[in-house]
Computed example of a mutant assay.
Amino acid sequence: MPYKAAQTAALATTSYIMSVAIMRGLVIVLMALDHVRGFFTDADFSATDLSRTNLMLFLTRWVTHLCAPAFVFLAGTSAFLSAQGEDRRQLAIRLLTRGLWLVILELTVVRFSWYFNLDYNQMSLQVIWALGWSMVVLSALIYLPLWAIASVGILMISAHNLLDGIRLDDFRAADGTHGWQGWALSVLHIPHYPVIYPLIPWIGVMAAGYAFGPVMLAASETRRKAALACGIVLITAFVILRAYNVYGDPVPWSGQETGLFTLLSFLNTTKYPPSLLYLLMTLGPMFVLLAAFEQAQGSIGRFLMIFGRVPLFFYLVHLYVIHALAVAVAFAMSGDIQSSSSETFSSWWGFGLPVVYLTWIAVVILLYPVCQWFAGLKSRHRGSWWTPYI
């Protein structure tokens, strides 16, 4: 569908697709589970370390893998859907300014929520950083035809693992630094402090999401069938590629002591940066759920949609609530806090998964009326300059 025709179709339907909002609500709520686990768990090892983890801990981490890919993909889709009545220049300016704003938020508001200090020797550039720069790049890509944007996205997703053989140490200088080449490689492909989310795969995910936008302007049943077909194709591709262990992830699966843990090894794909198999494994189920949400919009759907209408607001607020709650509980238990950083609580700190899940539920319930209020505020001020930025 040509760009202008798609805009006309959008005006005739709606820029607010409920299934998209429900999906965003689900992934942002699951993201809260991962962050509660990070602040409250008593496990001092990676939840996907098969030599130390258990089934429930692994699955608690694994299910939240859905969050970042779906969040970034749907940000691209929402960018297309929200472009009603705008020409490319207007959309490009909005994407550019919002992207830069997200980078600023990552460096200030988000960073402080993780560490509760102003020591910038502690820094981790994560999903909001990746979202921001992906929007900046998308602001240029939208001048291309939709098929070209889709091609760029698919190429970045499918081909970036060809760079896996490159190592940062290949660019190490005599003084021990990596030079500008190593820095650029870290930003684009290889995680290295402080960059946790290298940009190349995420730019591709957002571009693919934007190119998927016209599908979401079709009738509900057409959307459902298209999303379901995409989900089946991606899941099938994941199973086949993963089974052969040839390409798509730098860490192959391997046989374990039990069949269950062999299955976990099969599912244990690489997130940093997100490998092709990781993205197939997560975006496939996202499409299936998106198809399901076209028909299942009952009370649970309405509940999740509140969070999906204000995902950035929820993200910013929930980190402060979770961290502050962890600090308060730690102080109540010990009367002393050596550090308020999620990474350096005392060795005695932490709880099992039942407490993690109960805390997550409490945080979500606590934030529901807050998000409901803010969603209403945004709705009343729709069209205001500030609404696209939070």
Rank of each mutant, 00 (worst) to 15 (best):
Asn245Tyr: 00
Asn245Pro: 02
Asn245Ser: 14
Val246Thr: 14
Tyr247Trp: 12
Asp249Tyr: 05
Asp249Cys: 04
Asp249Ile: 11
Pro250Tyr: 03
Pro250His: 07
Val251Gln: 11
Val251Cys: 01
Val251Ser: 10
Val251Thr: 15
Pro252Met: 00
Pro252Gly: 01
Trp253Ala: 01
Trp253Ser: 01
Trp253Leu: 07
Trp253Lys: 05
Gly255Pro: 15
Gly255Ser: 15
Gly255Ile: 15
Gly255Leu: 15
Gln256Pro: 09
Glu257Val: 13
Thr258Gln: 08
Thr258Leu: 03
Thr258Pro: 08
Gly259Arg: 13
Leu260Cys: 10
Leu260Thr: 15
Thr262Phe: 04
Leu263Lys: 04
Leu263Arg: 03
Leu264Ile: 10
Ser265Asn: 03
Phe266Ile: 12
Phe266Gly: 01
Phe266Cys: 02
Thr269Phe: 02
Thr269Lys: 00
Lys271Trp: 11
Lys271Met: 13
Lys271Leu: 13
Tyr272Leu: 15
Tyr272Ala: 15
Pro274Thr: 05
Pro274Lys: 04
Pro274Gly: 09
Pro274Tyr: 05
Pro274Met: 06
Leu276Glu: 09
Leu276Asp: 01
Leu276Gln: 08
Leu276Phe: 08
Leu279Gln: 09
Leu279Phe: 07
Leu280Cys: 07
Leu280Tyr: 07
Leu280Thr: 05
Met281Cys: 12
Met281Asp: 11
Met281Val: 02
Leu283Cys: 04
Leu283Ile: 11
Leu283Arg: 06
Gly284Asn: 08
Gly284Pro: 07
Met286Glu: 05
Met286Val: 13
Phe287Trp: 12
Phe287Tyr: 11
Val288Gly: 05
Val288His: 09
Val288Trp: 13
Leu290Arg: 03
Leu290Asp: 00
Leu290Pro: 02
Ala291Pro: 00
Ala291Glu: 00
Ala291Lys: 01
Phe293Ala: 03
Phe293Lys: 03
Glu294Met: 09
Glu294Arg: 00
Gln295Ile: 14
Gln295Leu: 15
Gln295Pro: 00
Gln295Glu: 14
Ala296Thr: 14
Ala296Met: 14
Ala296Asp: 09
Gln297Lys: 06
Ser299Pro: 14
Ile300Ser: 12
Ile300Gln: 05
Ile300Pro: 08
Ile300Asn: 08
Gly301Leu: 05
Arg302Ser: 14
Arg302Asn: 12
Phe303Pro: 00
Leu304Ser: 00
Leu304Tyr: 02
Leu304His: 03
Met305Glu: 14
Met305Leu: 13
Ile306Trp: 04
Ile306Ala: 08
Phe307Trp: 07
Gly308Pro: 04
Gly308His: 03
Gly308Met: 06
Gly308Ile: 12
Val310Phe: 11
Val310His: 06
Pro311Arg: 05
Pro311Tyr: 01
Pro311Ala: 00
Pro311Lys: 00
Leu312Lys: 04
Phe313Asn: 00
Tyr315Asp: 02
Tyr315Lys: 10
Leu316His: 03
Leu316Tyr: 06
Leu316Val: 14
Leu316Cys: 03
Val317Arg: 01
His318Asn: 13
His318Cys: 10
His318Ser: 11
Leu319Lys: 13
Leu319Val: 07
Tyr320Ser: 06
